[in-house]
């Protein structure tokens, strides 16, 4: 544990030079919304967009433009004023901490599922999408496809190795692929199943630990920095797992959730797993994340039945998922596509 915590702080301080003045930024929980359950008899999504969690008032607040089908978002580690939204329409960027926004992609880019930014060079931006990987070398001003080596293009997630930023992993519908040349070329990671990978994450405390959720094969885990992968959580071995997360304060803590599974938690690095969250109003989990500001807190979004957190590793759950008076929307009843943390300017 001591080692893990020290690793975390070493990494934290190691990346500090890359960041803007750290005293000016803070981690913020975000929820990226596709729609809410109030949508009936219409192809047009209802409430959607991005909500940020206000920890002081314990409320969700809308952030950024009211834009439909937002799948995820990300901020530039070296300049948190640069914010990227991954949307059905493409990529929307703010360079002034959310004051103004611009759709930076054209008609060729759409259905963006995830965005990551090179922590060593904010000009390199990588996006996973239903049409493959698209990359920018100029901070998002222009984009091009980067699918060489991919067997199938549909990609649900992408992660940049912050210790080796030329290395990226992408979660496609044909398995996990790795690039060692900043997404110029891709190759399949041999030990992973050749099926759809739905979610992908890496531990901040112990960067050797990677976790992925699959379509039909449960959870897979790597403890050697993503080189080899093994199946874990036998109770989920046939499940579709949409949310996977690892605790940034403790690499032994893992969580996963999928359709009909509720939340499963491991506190021993994946050796054993427990099913938690049976009292949640729905066992259909669409996203989950450990808290980056409050140690031990775990968040989970259920399919249109609310977003909850637990401070006791899933034994009890609480929700602040209520309508904000005067706000243009809420995440009550939302289909949360992604739940995670971004660094934002204080």
């Amino acid at each position: 544990m001591k080692f893990l915590l020290s690793s975390f702080f070493i990494l934290f301080f190691a990346t500090l030079p890359l960041l803007a003045d750290d005293s000016l930024v803070e981690p913020k929980l975000f929820a990226a919304l596709g729609m809410t359950k109030s949508q009936k008899a219409s192809p047009i999504p209802t409430d959607s967009g991005v909500f940020l969690y206000d920890t002081v008032n314990e409320r969700w607040r809308r952030f950024g433009p009211t834009i439909q089908q937002v799948n995820s978002l990300s901020t530039d580690p070296s300049n948190p004023e640069n914010i990227f939204l991954a949307c059905g329409n493409g990529i929307v960027r703010s360079q002034d901490n959310g004051k103004t926004w611009r759709m930076v992609t054209g008609w060729r880019e759409s259905d963006i599922t995830k965005i990551v930014i090179d922590p060593s060079n904010g000009k390199n931006v990588y996006a996973a999408s239903a049409w493959g990987v698209t990359i920018s070398r100029d901070g998002g001003d222009s984009w091009s496809a980067a699918n060489e080596g991919l067997v199938e293009k549909f990609s649900n997630s992408i992660v940049v190795d912050h210790l080796n930023p030329k290395r990226l992993l992408v979660a496609t519908t044909a398995g996990l692929f790795v690039s060692y040349d900043s997404a110029e070329t891709w190759e399949q990671i041999p030990t992973t199943p050749k099926i759809a990978i739905l979610g992908l994450g890496r531990n901040k405390a112990d960067p050797n630990i990677w976790i992925a959720g699959t379509e039909g094969n449960g959870v897979i885990l790597s403890s050697d920095n993503g080189k080899t992968w093994q199946s874990t959580a036998p109770g989920l071995s046939t499940a579709n797992i949409y949310g996977v997360t690892t605790d940034p304060f403790n690499g032994e803590n893992l969580a996963a959730g999928g359709w009909g599974t509720g939340i499963w938690i491991s506190t021993d690095g994946g050796k054993s797993w427990k099913n938690r969250g049976k009292e949640l109003p729905s066992q259909n989990i669409t996203a989950t994340t450990f808290d980056y500001a409050q140690s031990g807190r775990l968040w989970a979004s259920t399919f249109e039945e609310g977003t909850f957190y637990s401070d006791d590793m899933g034994v009890t759950w609480r929700s602040d998922d209520v309508v904000v008076p005067g706000a243009t929307g809420s995440i009550l009843g939302a289909y949360v596509n992604d739940l995670g943390f971004i660094s934002v300017k204080k």
Binding site: T113, G258, W259
Partner: peptide
Amino acid sequence: GENWDTVTDLISRS
């Protein structure tokens, strides 16, 4: 681009 478990439900809404 929807997920396996939600796509039929979402289609059926409209």
